[in-house]
């Protein structure tokens, strides 16, 4: 039996995904050891391998076939624009991709004049402003603490993930527009999906049953 390899986005998503997988009978004891320095974990019995990677790299591993299955946020899938099968909405990690800024920036959105947008997600931001809003936008790519940008005057607004909105509020920012809802998704390499059809479909069906049972 060939190994099926899972790429999981590091952090909360991976933790939740493993929990969900465990409910379907897929476990990885090795991974529970918090002190381990291993990079890749194996379940010999089921012929499965798991590894953690930076979220933005998960679609890359899966598209190029280094991993068969990936668990990653919809934000990353949209931003990376890879050629993948996106087979399941896991329903957790729910949040929204939004345009945020000080209330005063709303007039720039309304007037459709040129706007400065800072974001960790330049592709999503560009697609939204150009194709949906049809507004000229100067996109500035940042790598973290995007909320700073409008505060220090780097940009008019930001495009970022909003979960509770607390950080925004504390910094005098607000959600101006919602771009799309987000959640964790299961992605599959297109070749793996065909060659390992039965095993992968089986995992998906079981995960689906757990998700629907939980609701």
């Amino acid at each position: 039996m060939k190994y099926l390899t899972f790429a999981l986005a590091k952090g909360r998503l991976a933790f939740k995904a493993l929990e969900l997988l465990e409910q379907t009978g897929i476990t990885c004891e090795e991974m529970k050891d918090k002190d381990t320095r291993k990079l890749i974990f194996t379940n010999e019995e089921l012929g499965l391998k798991f590894f953690l990677s930076k979220a933005t790299d998960v679609p890359t591993y899966v598209e190029l076939g280094a991993a068969d299955i990936g668990v990653v946020g919809y934000d990353t899938i949209l931003e990376e624009g890879r050629n993948l099968y996106e087979v399941l909405d896991l329903g957790f990690g729910k949040c929204r991709m939004c345009v945020c800024g000080p209330e005063s920036a709303r007039s720039i959105l309304d007037s459709h004049q040129m706007i400065n947008v800072a974001s960790k997600y330049p592709n999503i931001a560009k697609d939204y402003f150009h194709n949906v809003r049809q507004q000229t936008a100067e996109i500035i790519k940042l790598n973290g603490s995007v909320e700073l940008a409008p505060i220090v005057g780097l940009s008019d607004v930001i495009v970022d993930i909003v979960e509770t909105g607390t950080t925004l509020k504390e910094n005098g920012l607000t959600v101006l527009e919602e771009i799309c809802p987000l959640s964790a998704r299961v992605v599959v390499n297109q070749v793996s999906m065909k060659l390992e059809q039965e095993r992968i479909r089986d995992i998906i069906t079981k995960l689906e049953a757990v998700i629907n049972g939980g609701n």
């Binding site: 060939k2 598209e63 190029l64 076939g65 050629n83 390499n189 297109q190 070749v191 065909k194 060659l195």
Partner: peptide, 27 residues
């Protein structure tokens, strides 16, 4: 047979196929 194989192009008018093997992430 896999009836989820469809095509984006309207000039396709019958069978469509893709061949897969291990080691390459694409058909």
């Amino acid at each position: 047979f896999d009836l989820s194989l469809i095509s984006d192009y309207d000039y396709y008018s019958g069978i469509v196929f893709k061949g897969y093997t291990y080691g390459s992430g694409s058909p």
